[in-house]
Amino acid sequence: MLRIGLSGGIGAGKSTVSTEFSKCGGIVVDGDVIAREVVQPGTEGLAKLVEAFGQEILLPDGALNRPALAAIAFPDDEKRATLNGIVHPLVGKRRAELIEAAPADAVIVEDIPLLVESQMAPLFPLVVIVDADVETRVKRLVEQRGMPEEDARHRIAAQATEGQRRAVADVWLHNSGSVEDLAERARTLWQERIVPFAHNVAAREPVRVTPHLVPPDPTWPDQASRIVARLNAACGHRAVRIDHIGSTAVPGLDAKDVIDVQVTVPSLPVADELVDALLAAGYPRIDAFTDTPHTPDPALWHKRLHASADPGRPTNVHIRVDGWPGQQFALLFRDWLIAEPDVRAEYLTLKREVAAAGHQTTAEYTDAKEPWFVDAYHRAWEWADTTGWKP
């Protein structure tokens, strides 16, 4: 099962994307629909809302008067928090029931309006955000939903900012054009990224990448932050720490467009306990793996390696044991390159020479660099001793 988190501000066009995903075969679990369901007449949710906000939020027939509730809750932070505290747990419980009932190989699209505000983004292998500028959204809410402009602006202001949404977005769909344009981009995303992603997860196959260098991408750190958050959610207490490592963690350095992340664990048996959780997060295991030893005990260089099944974001997840030399060197090497421009330039020259040889696999590319690392390992530790570096 592959779970997709879908969100966007009110009036951004999220429903159009949700509808297209459903047409493509996704099972849509719609947070808005569930939110209405859990406050129907006779439900626990409606009773709690009346207790918190009074009888004035009810229509004459006993149903919830949504505009009346919005007018009370949305302009007031405390009252909005009370509303969310009542509705969100009920929505979460019903969402879990619907997901549990879905087929094991389904692609579940969880349409969650407050995905960002509820800090749920790291729970999903892929997060899709639909956005539009504020004035466009206000116009849509007024013209298409008949909402008073003041209410529309209150609703927008109460939700996450664009910056907060961008921080969690693996895919950003800006909806400034027509409905047809947005629908077409949603279908393309489904066919070119989501379908292969789901296939790879089901087959437990990581994305295979032909190594080639690209110029530094200023968004690599932000992408890595999302991956680290996702891995933290998957690994929980079993991870001692999780770090962005490798060349994409070094500002200004050419690199393969692959994010490398190190998960530090207490032992290799703990790493083996993470297989299913990491697969659910979109990172199937490749196999038991050993780094090239640079100390006399090769056993201390064993690790576990996972890689992303998402064709849109190749990622390597190295699981190493806390305090073992491979775990420490991954952190040391990154920090050494950041701190020493001459070493960084030397390494870049090596990378370009190796890349020019046209290696077809990452293993071949890595092996070609290894002779340089024999000396670099000792130089890096000498620098650590001189500077007092600590992992």
Rank of each mutant, 00 (worst) to 15 (best):
H244E: 07
T290E: 15
F53A: 06
P75V: 07
R155E: 01
V209M: 12
L46S: 04
P266V: 04
R153W: 03
D181S: 12
G11T: 01
P371T: 06
A277L: 15
A73I: 02
R36G: 10
A356G: 06
V33C: 08
P296L: 11
A35E: 12
H237L: 09
E205L: 08
H174K: 02
P314E: 13
C24D: 03
V240H: 01
A183I: 00
V138N: 09
V50C: 06
V142D: 08
Y347M: 07
A229T: 03
Q327M: 06
S178P: 01
P371S: 00
V38I: 15
L115T: 04
V33L: 15
Q159V: 03
R226S: 09
I286R: 15
A202M: 03
T387K: 12
E51S: 09
A71C: 04
Q327W: 01
R95E: 10
G11I: 06
L173Q: 10
A363G: 03
P293D: 11
T292G: 00
K369I: 02
A356C: 12
V28P: 11
D272L: 03
P311S: 13
L305V: 11
R208K: 15
A356Q: 13
T43V: 07
D342I: 12
W389L: 09
K14S: 00
A357G: 07
V28G: 13
V270D: 14
Q328H: 01
V87D: 09
G323D: 04
Q55N: 00
D30T: 11
I129M: 12
A233C: 03
E20F: 03
Q262A: 13
A384C: 02
S178V: 06
L331V: 08
Q40S: 14
G388R: 07
Q327Y: 04
P296A: 10
G252P: 09
P341M: 11
S176Q: 00
P75N: 10
T161F: 05
W372S: 02
P215Y: 04
H88W: 02
E150H: 00
I27S: 12
R36V: 13
V38Q: 10
R187A: 13
R3Q: 09
V179P: 01
F21W: 09
W172C: 01
A186E: 11
L49K: 10
V134M: 08
A234V: 14
E51R: 13
G246V: 04
I259E: 06
P211L: 05
A70G: 14
V138R: 05
S178T: 15
E162F: 02
P221D: 07
E353C: 02
T219L: 00
T361P: 11
V28D: 14
W301D: 06
E205R: 10
F373G: 00
L279T: 12
T362A: 12
K256C: 00
I156T: 05
A330W: 02
A132G: 08
V33Y: 14
L348I: 14
V171D: 09
D77M: 03
R204T: 02
G326I: 11
L331S: 04
V270F: 07
G45H: 11
A357F: 05
V87G: 03
T161M: 13
V38A: 05
L300P: 00
H294T: 05
V263K: 06
